[in-house]
């Protein structure tokens, strides 16, 4: 008997079986390759963080790129932690924090109608910070994430230990237009951020990305990309939104720089857990600063 390949029943059954088969194959392959793909994504994140600290530009020239990046990462990225909106360290793995979900919260905070709703949202925030040490220099690397023209844009900004000066920055995107918006991912654009300031007359001011912004006498601006206006604007907005949430932490750190106390608190006669940005070791009598942790909560009794 010859099958009637044009009947409705046959068509429906045929397409159903085919689609289920194809879906099965794809699901299997996708599951099997997932760990390898995740590893690549993690490696790329490491490379971005290193690039923000102006390290690892020669990675592509190495024979074993992934080993090189991992080694460089473990050498320089000495610490990472998660902050809440007040700048306190909370539990969490900074590397694993999904920037997109945090961006969704920040977006709602900006759009919140009342201060109460904004506050309630702020309490959910988890802000990652990565600490990078190059010789004696200690950098705090913070991320930013926002919506570009066609898809997400994100980046990492390395800030020097005065919590004002940008040491380096790197940006990336999912699908901006090549040659236009996609230029944010290239060195001529992000190198403009080097040495720019995040404050103006003592107040927080984010970096503006505008036409003619990159003049040498303007410490708060960089040049936008011709033909990539929407991407430039979105990136500017993303940077401002994220840095704004980090201000609480930066203020704590800035206050600590001037005082001779190591963590901005009165000398308490106890051992301080001192963060890695210690400009000056604690000079107060009876105070001892440990250089390995940032956790202020665990003051340990200092015994002589």
């Amino acid at each position: 008997m010859k099958l009637n390949t044009n009947s409705n029943i046959y068509t429906i059954i045929y397409t159903t079986i085919l689609v289920v088969l194809v879906a099965g194959v794809l699901a299997f392959v996708s599951t099997a390759l997932k760990p390898k793909q995740q590893e690549n994504i993690a490696l790329e994140k490491m490379q971005s963080l290193l690039r923000a600290a102006r390290l690892g530009d020669d990675a592509s020239a190495q024979n074993n790129k992934s080993e090189y990046i991992k080694a460089l990462y473990s050498e320089h990225m000495t610490n990472d932690f998660v902050l809440d909106y007040e700048g306190n360290v909370i539990e969490g793995e900074a590397f694993e924090i999904d920037l997109q979900s945090q961006y969704n919260i920040i977006k709602k905070i900006v759009a919140a109608k009342t201060p109460e709703t904004a506050q309630a949202l702020r309490e959910q925030l988890q802000l990652p910070v990565f600490v990078c040490t190059i010789d004696e220099k200690v950098l705090n690397i913070v991320p930013c994430y926002g919506a570009g023209l066609w898809g997400p844009v994100w980046g990492y900004i390395a800030i020097e230990d005065d919590f004002e000066t940008i040491y380096g920055a790197v940006f990336d995107h999912k699908g901006e237009t090549p040659g236009l918006g996609a230029e944010i991912a290239h060195a001529p654009f992000y190198n403009q951020f080097v040495g720019k300031k995040l404050s103006k007359e003592g107040e927080f001011k984010s970096i503006s990305i505008v036409k003619g912004g990159g003049q040498a006498d303007n410490p708060n601006g960089v040049d936008a990309i011709s033909g990539g206006t929407i991407t430039s604007q979105s990136l500017e907005q993303a940077i401002a939104m994220w840095l704004n949430e980090y201000q609480a932490y930066f203020n704590i750190k800035r206050a600590a720089i001037g005082s001779d106390d190591c963590c901005g608190e009165e000398c308490c006669g106890e051992e301080h857990n001192h963060d890695q940005n210690g400009k000056e070791p604690c000079a107060g009598e009876g105070c001892v600063c440990k250089k390995d942790s940032l956790n202020h909560e665990s003051h340990e009794q200092y015994t002589k």
Binding site: T5, L18, L26
Partner: peptide, 27 residues
């Protein structure tokens, strides 16, 4: 292949191979 839906069937098969390649390249 049912003649009336043959383009779609072909498209599914092409898409299968393309996604496979995409997944392998990503890995």
């Amino acid at each position: 292949i049912p003649n009336r839906v043959r383009i779609i069937i072909q498209l599914v098969i092409v898409a299968l191979f393309v996604i496979l390649i995409d997944q392998f390249l990503k890995a």
